[in-house]
Every structure is written in structure tokens, then in C-alpha cells.
Design a protein around this nucleic acid. Structure first.
Lengths: 344, 344
DNA sequence: CAGCGGCAGTGTTACGTATAACGTGGCTGG
DNA sequence: CCAGCCACGTTATACGTAACACTGCCGCTG
């Protein structure tokens, strides 16, 4: 079991099983239907098991040109959403004997000019978040990434001739949030939005605007800021202290922004949700760590990664994966409530 | 630049440079000192650059048995600390042409019996967090992991004959927290501790106990719970509503626990920090998302990963890396304050 | 002038796998 | 009785790199 350090090769297995190396390769490669007898196959598998044989991936890659490794391109793994996307992708990949590596070497120390660098030699396909698209100029042209099969995550599915996409129903999610707030009686609403200009955030902005336009008397103020707590706090403070009647709800593009909005509220002496309702988006662990817990939209991040990986595997088989749209779910918690009586 | 898809080989470079393939290998492998003239080397490098040559990693691995890839074993990437450890490790690895893959395929779908599975074929060494040690029974025996060079992170450095370690000065950090609370006048203190029994948490418990023992009149109550907000909230509620005079401070083993403690305080109508001081540990992004922001201990997580990777590279060179102890820093924010006058 | 050592490279080989091409008995239909 | 075919394997080969052994050649030395 605990071998001295030298790994057995397919030839060792062949010797042990009394067959040729080619037969071992056939059996273990699952290509033996009708070419090797059931019994011989069993013998080979047992010998492989006894020796603890595992194929040398380098040799296999060299021969086939396939590495059984996918590259996941995300802006930062320290964002919980992307960590979960990775988790989902890696799980599906593992089921198919694939591995997942990450780009960039998160410090961003890699050569920006040649996005894939030497990694290009060692991967079969790319799974890229549209939020990392800035790191990869020209990605997605012709539906490929530097000649490699590509699947885009959270990207505009309408792009013609683009790569297969896996998307979340963000429009639906943010619409549910908007209607939730409207149903609670809120009419003066701040949309605390990301200042990043990618599809997933444009959709949010458009949908919120459309929903509020449909309601007479609804008033929308949009405030854009970076996706961090401090920036969100400052932006929320600006919006809440602007002239005119005070908004009664802050609809945020992300839980992080919502945390900032809550801090702004507290700073102004406003109670959440009595004086101000705050909604998030993402359902990070942060959402339940705050007090009150955030009303937010739960994103199936693992499924995004998993579905993306499935699509990539389909692509690698030569088929065309269908576009995927994953449902999201409004989770109502304590940070939103009915508008105060005096405000109504 | 954008070649049709077929990658150039070292032989192509050799042809372009007018030398033999072996020379290309020598030059690009940086083994040419005194074996190839400066001028020839320059010619080779230029040809390689023109063709956009990148070595075929599979072929190299096959020949050398080295893959230039390290395995990072962590419990879950969705924990911000480990995501940051990964980030640091990957950055250092990239500087040396190494990659980092993660274990387990986070869903835990891998074969638990053979911890490394087929990955063992494709890695040169292992970087393992002691907090994932349960996933890897027998890891670290003889300072190796299944025959592979190993570096342990956040592990007991005193283990004899064990692998090289990279540690944080957690004892120093938690001591600073304890003294901070004591200096603020707190005497009745809850230690909200992890129920995980690994070195890093044992050190916390021992250090807190020792510090409080040294102060006359100090009273310590330890409450153990799982590392999530809800469990922490419940544990804190238990401790805060126990009979006897109420504690004035909760010293937590992690920011997540501290978030739970804050929720418990709010549930009991206690103001943080006026009625109850709460301290965290880790300095996650959560620490500044909460309101008030958490007094906590900042851990150089990226440096843990980076130093671990450096140690592993040293090990792979055949040298003995020195044990690393990284300093931590107390960050005083708004969640701790002087004990209320009436309590004193 | 023979011999030696160092420089600057070249020729060749091995790594372990996957697969195309190639037997080889035995059975069966005509 | 033989062609043909199936079931069952084997032989041979290619992949791209790194390392080892080797070869001219030049200058120096005794």
C-alpha cells in the first residue's frame, strides 16, 4: 500500500496481470468493449488495484494533448461568491476526472499581456466570469478564449456568436426585491448600485428602473459606488442626507453594499428596518452575520460553477451546450419592513 | 502572434535559431552557464520569444517527474482566511513557475481513502492546513504526506520529527486581546471558543486562561461552539444569561463568533461596547462590515500561504526550511470599550 | 609535437501513455 | 473444406522535453 515512492506504471500492471501494456490502457481507459474479454478486464483491474496504479497524467496529456484540466477565471477568490463558484465547478469537474485551476495567480502578478501564459499549455478549456473580463481583453471573441473552448458566467447571453453562457436570473431576483419593497409601502427608494459596468449590474439597474416606473409616485435615486463597505456607507450617507424627503428604503446590488447602508443608517440614528429598509443581494454569509439579518437574494453560486463546468465538458465533447439560466430566490429577513405610518 | 492553434516546440525554436534542440533546452532551462556562449543564448531566447514558445509542461513533467505544481489542503475555500492563504501561496508559486491546486475537490466527493487520489501523480509537494488534518488521516507522519514533501500551516511546531511549519503568533495575538480587555477594566470575561480541537485553538484557550489567572479577581468562563454565527449566538446567550453577575466582555476565537456574540448582545438589549465588549480574531472583511466594527487580530493570511510555499520550494530543493512564525496585530475598533462605571 | 583540459555545442535516448495497425485462433456459413 | 469474420489481444509508434554521453576544436604545457 505505502509504496516506497516509485509509482507503478501501466507496464507494471500489465506484467502483474499477464497481459500487454496496451491491454491495460484499453481496460483502464474504458475502451475495451468488444476488444477485451470480461475476465481479462477484471484481472487487469484487480492488478491495477493491488498495485495502487494511477495513470501518469503527464504522459497521458503528452499523448492526447488533453490535460483534463479547466481554467476558472474570476476576479478574486476572496469574494465568497467566487469561492462558491469554484467549489461547484471543482465538484462537477472531479466527477469527470477533471481538475480546476484558477486564474489569475490572484495577486495579479501574472503577465497581463498574454492572459494565459504558460497555463495555456496545460488546460483544455476556460470558464470565465464576465466580472473578470477586464483582465482578459479580447476574451470571448468568436466564442473562444485564445483558441480554447470557453464558457462565460454571468455574461450577456444575447451576444451574437458568443460563447455558451451560464446565467443567474438576476433580473427576476432584483424584480422580486423591488416588488417586495413596493408591497411594503416604500415609494422613495435608493438603488445603491455597483460602479462596475458589466452585464449583471446593468440588468439590475434596468430592471429596478423599469419596476419603479410602473408604479405611480415611486421615486428612484441611484447612487453608484465601489463594491466595498466603506464606499457603500459613504454613498448611502450622501443619498440619505440629500435634500428632499428622506428615502425609506435602500435596495443594494450586493450584501456588502447593504452592510454599508446599514452602517450609514446607524450613523444617522435610523433604525433598520423601522426607519429604513435595506435589502441586499447574493446571500453571503455576511447576510446572516449582520443584525438585523439581511433581506437578500440567494444565488446558487455552486450551481453556476457546476453548470458552467458541465457546459464546458459538453463543449469539449464537440456538442453545443444549451444556455443555462438558474433561478434565484428572494429571502426575506429582518432588514426590510413596512414603511412607518407617519411616512405613509 | 496569434498562431493558428498549433504550438511551437523546442525543435521549432532550435530550427529558427540555427541550433540543436538540446541547446534550446539548456538555454531556456537556465542551465547554460559555461556550456553555451552568451551570444548563442541570446539568439535562442529571441527565437523563442518570436515564436511565442512555451514549453509543453506535460512533456517536461514526463521527463523530469516534476510537475511544478503544489497541492494546498484546506477545509473550505469559502472561508475567507483560506482563500487568502491560497492567494498568497499562488502568488509566490507563480513567481517560481509553480501552480497551486486545491484539495479536496471542495464538495468532498473525492475518495477519502486515498487522500490524494490521482492528484498524487500530478503534484510535487503538499501544503496542508492543520485544520484540514481530519481529512487526511496519517498526514505528516515522518514529515511527509504520502511520500511527498510536506509543509504544515498553523500546526504545532513542537511536534518532533514533524514537517516544517508556518505558524502565526496566535498566542501573542490572543494575549494582546486579553490584556486589552483587562486594561479596559474588564474582569468577568467569556471566552467564546471553537469546539475544534486543533493546535491553533488549544493555544488560544491556554493563553487566555494563563493571562486571566495572572490577574487577581479576573473570572473566566469558557463556552465552546461551532464556528458559525448561529451557534455562537446561542452559546453567547447561554453564557450571558447564566446565574451570577453578568460578564462584561466576550473574547472570541474568530470574527464569525464575535458576530454571533454581537447578535446575542442585541437580543438581550445590551449595547456594544457600552454594556458589553466583544473582540474577534482573524480580521475578516466581516469585521468592518459589522457595526460597531470589531476589535480583532489581523492575521497575515497571504503571508502564511506565501511563506508556506517558500518553505515547500526550499524543501523541494533539498534544503531544510527554518520554521516560520509570523507576527499578528491587534486592531482596536469600536466593539470594545471601557467597562461601565457602575460595573467597576 | 603529443597530450590534456576546457569550451561550445550536437546526437541520442528515455520517460509512460494512448491508439492505429496488425496478428491469430476458433467458429460458421456456403 | 475454405473464406470470412468475430473475439481477443499484441506490436509498434508518436508525443516534446531534459539529461547524458560524446565530438570537434582551440590553446596551453611539457
Amino acid at each position: 500500500m505505502a509504496s516506497g515512492g516509485i509509482r507503478p506504471t501501466s507496464r507494471d500492471v500489465a506484467r502483474a496481470a499477464g497481459v500487454s501494456q496496451a491491454t491495460v490502457s484499453l481496460v483502464l481507459g474504458d475502451k475495451w468493449r468488444g476488444r477485451v474479454s470480461e475476465r481479462t478486464a477484471a484481472v487487469v483491474r484487480e492488478a491495477a488495484g493491488d498495485l495502487g496504479y494511477a495513470p501518469n497524467l503527464a504522459a497521458r496529456s503528452l499523448r492526447t494533448g488533453r490535460t483534463r484540466t479547466a481554467l476558472l477565471v474570476v476576479p478574486a477568490l476572496t469574494h465568497e461568491y467566487f469561492a462558491r463558484v469554484y467549489t461547484g465547478a471543482a465538484a462537477v469537474a472531479a466527477e469527470h476526472g477533471f481538475g480546476v485551476v484558477l486564474y489569475p495567480s490572484p495577486a495579479g502578478t501574472g503577465p497581463a499581456r498574454d492572459p494565459f501564459g504558460s497555463a495555456r499549455a496545460a488546460i483544455d478549456g476556460v470558464l470565465a466570469s464576465s466580472m473578470a473580463a477586464d483582465a482578459l481583453a479580447g476574451i470571448g471573441e468568436g466564442g473562444r478564449a485564445g483558441g480554447l473552448p470557453l464558457v462565460m458566467l454571468d455574461s450577456d447571453p444575447a451576444a451574437p456568436g458568443g460563447p455558451p453562457t451560464v446565467n443567474l436570473a438576476v433580473a427576476d431576483g432584483i424584480r422580486q426585491v423591488a416588488r417586495h419593497l413596493l408591497a411594503l409601502g416604500h415609494r422613495r427608494i435608493i438603488h445603491l448600485a455597483s460602479d462596475v459596468d458589466t452585464w449583471t449590474f446593468r440588468v439590475r439597474a434596468d430592471t429596478v428602473a423599469a419596476e419603479l416606473r410602473a408604479v405611480p409616485g415611486a421615486l428612484l435615486r441611484t447612487e453608484r459606488c465601489a463594491l466595498d463597505v466603506t464606499a457603500a456607507r459613504d454613498a448611502a450617507l450622501r443619498a440619505l442626507t440629500a435634500s428632499g424627503p428622506r428615502p425609506t428604503a435602500v435596495l443594494c446590488d450586493g450584501d456588502t453594499l447593504a452592510a454599508g447602508a446599514c452602517k450609514a443608517a446607524r450613523h444617522l440614528g435610523l433604525h433598520v428596518p423601522r426607519d429604513l429598509s435595506v435589502s441586499g443581494f447574493d446571500d453571503l454569509s455576511l447576510a446572516t452575520a449582520l443584525d438585523p439579518e439581511l433581506t437578500t437574494v440567494r444565488l446558487p453560486a455552486e450551481q453556476v460553477g457546476g453548470a458552467g463546468m458541465s457546459a464546458l465538458l459538453t463543449l469539449l465533447r464537440g456538442d453545443h451546450p444549451a444556455p443555462v439560466d438558474l433561478p434565484v430566490e428572494l429571502v426575506v429577513r429582518g432588514s426590510t419592513g413596512p414603511v412607518a405610518a407617519k411616512e405613509a
